[in-house]
Nucleic acid binder design. Structure first.
Length: 258
DNA sequence: AAAGTTATCAACCGCTGCCTC
DNA sequence: AGAGGCAGCGGTTGATAACTT
């Protein structure tokens, strides 16, 4: 990516240059050398020693996202990886760093970008505009997004670590009552190939044993929607349609599901 | 071929939690 | 105990590539 001409230079209080923007190969090399000597830590010392005019934060990010060994840079997410992300997002919420640990060679940034890209695509398919970036919408973003159901309590078979309050909002395995959660388990979300709805067979088989996820923790299980929870009628209708071979046709007829 | 739209990626920002003093 | 620094995380932005009209 060539953004050389757009490089920004800013100054801190001491008028000491802090370089921002794209990294040069020489800077990468300095960073790699630092990690070879000291390991992936002491990021702020890189600048204090005058090795680079980058913040420690920036150095860490560069290492984690681009320079770390064994990264799958430039390699698209496989169907398997997509399913893993979808499954884990349903379980953990937007814990990208945590999800990334289940995918070798993928960073939290990769997972985050993949998911946000997917959300936009889905929003378009559903004839809802992508979430506005306007600050005034940020706190309510989840509520204009795609569709909502009242979710039942999910049962997870694993004992999980205590969850901080801030984490609980979208982590379905910790929902304790009928909380509003983002996203219904659209078939497309569970089976990424269905986004290619020209060719999708729409043979939805959601039996737990066919869930393809394989992660580092073999005991991991995913919450399942209980079949008989009381969804609002509108949502029930929506979900009923998911099994309809013509389901996606409705999107072409300006049906607003919000 | 040009213009418009969408997808992808890299990097920054702000916040939070942990650790040290 | 609490202040300050640092690392890490998630959200967001902006540039470019790829695709469509």
């Amino acid at each position: 990516m060539l953004m050389e001409g757009k490089r920004r230079i800013v100054y801190d209080e001491e008028m000491e240059e802090i370089k921002k923007g794209p990294w040069k190969a020489e800077e990468d090399q300095v960073l790699i050398n630092h990690v070879r000597k000291h390991g992936p830590r002491d990021w702020s010392s890189i600048r204090s020693k005058g090795l680079l005019q980058r913040t420690g934060k920036s150095c860490r990010l560069r290492w984690v996202n681009k320079l770390r060994p064994h990264l799958k840079s430039g390699v698209k997410f496989s169907a398997e990886e997509e399913r893993t992300v979808i499954d884990l997002q349903a379980q953990f919420g937007n814990k990208w760093a945590k999800i990334a640990t289940y995918l070798s060679g993928r960073t939290d940034n990769d997972v985050k970008n993949f998911w946000s890209s997917r959300q936009k695509r889905l929003a378009r398919i559903l004839h809802t505009s992508a979430p506005s970036s306007s600050k005034s919408h940020q706190n309510t973003k989840d509520h204009d997004d795609i569709s909502f159901v009242k979710a039942p309590k999910f049962i997870s078979s694993t004992e999980e670590e205590p969850v901080r309050k801030s984490e609980s909002c979208s982590s379905s395995s910790h929902i304790t009552d009928f909380e509003t959660i983002k996203m219904v388990p659209l078939p497309e979300l569970v089976y990424p190939s269905m986004l290619d709805y020209e060719n999708a067979p729409f043979q939805i088989d959601s039996t737990p044993e066919k869930q393809p996820f394989v992660g580092p923790h073999s005991h991991l299980s995913f919450p399942q929607l209980q079949p008989d929870f009381p969804l609002p009628l509108e949502s029930q209708d929506f979900i009923t349609r998911l099994g309809d071979p013509n389901f996606l046709d409705v999107f072409g007829n300006s049906v607003d599901l919000r």
